[in-house]
Each structure stands twice: as structure tokens, then as C-alpha cells.
């Protein structure tokens, strides 16, 4: 894994990225008991194989999702976090102008 394809900035050197660990399934704070909270906080995906993780392109502070194979150390896919919430994965055209005031 040398190059990562940032959904916002395109392919960049992997040293520009920071990993924020596996995506956690959502939890309902109104109904979750202690055991559920414990699992939510501490029981993260350790499957040897493809896992889904939060990553950040550090210089632009852009957060996104990567699917990565933890055995071969290969990136399978990268996409915007919106896709996690059931929205279509569209490589939307965002220009830096739009997000900067």
C-alpha cells in the first residue's frame, strides 16, 4: 500500500493519510445497555481480510471510508462517508472553492 485514492483529492502518497480505525455499527443511546456500549467502544473489527475503516487525508482534513484487505495490505475501495448511510456512491464533483468560506 503506497498510493491511496482519496475520493476528494485523488491518488496521493499513503504517508499523507491517517487511519481512524474500523467503522462501528451505529448504536441507539436510548436503549443500549452497558454490554452494548462496551462492545460498541472496544469490540472493533479484527477480521483477517477486507475491513471497512475511517481514513483522513491529513493535509486537507478530509474524512472518508476505505475498504482495505488486512492480509494483503491492499486498498479495495475508497468512497465518501455518505455512502455508509445508504446514499448512492457518486464521485461528486466538489471543488475546493465550495467548501472554503
Amino acid at each position: 500500500m503506497k498510493i491511496m485514492n482519496c475520493p476528494f483529492n485523488g491518488p496521493r502518497n499513503s504517508s499523507e493519510f491517517t487511519c481512524f480505525g474500523p467503522v462501528r455499527p451505529p448504536i441507539d443511546p436510548d436503549t443500549a445497555d452497558d454490554a452494548a456500549w462496551s462492545r460498541h467502544m472496544f469490540q472493533l473489527d479484527n477480521t483477517p481480510g477486507v475491513i471497512r475503516e475511517w481514513w483522513r487525508h491529513t493535509p486537507s482534513n478530509y474524512f472518508f471510508i476505505a475498504e482495505r484487505n488486512t492480509v494483503t495490505d491492499e486498498i479495495v475501495a475508497t468512497y465518501e462517508p455518505a455512502a455508509l448511510h445508504g446514499k448512492a456512491i457518486t464521485p461528486k464533483e466538489i471543488t475546493p472553492k465550495e467548501i472554503m468560506p
Binding site: 491517517t18 487511519c19 479484527n46 483477517p48 475491513i51 482495505r68 488486512t70 492480509v71 494483503t72 495490505d73
Partner: peptide
């Protein structure tokens, strides 16, 4: 290493 992995490869970084 900065991210999890199930292999004992090593890196130049």
C-alpha cells in the same frame, strides 16, 4: 505501525 494488519510484512517508512 499506523494501521492494523494481519501480516508480518515490514516497511521502509
Amino acid at each position: 505501525d499506523p494501521y492494523q494488519l494481519a501480516a508480518t510484512r515490514s516497511t521502509l517508512d
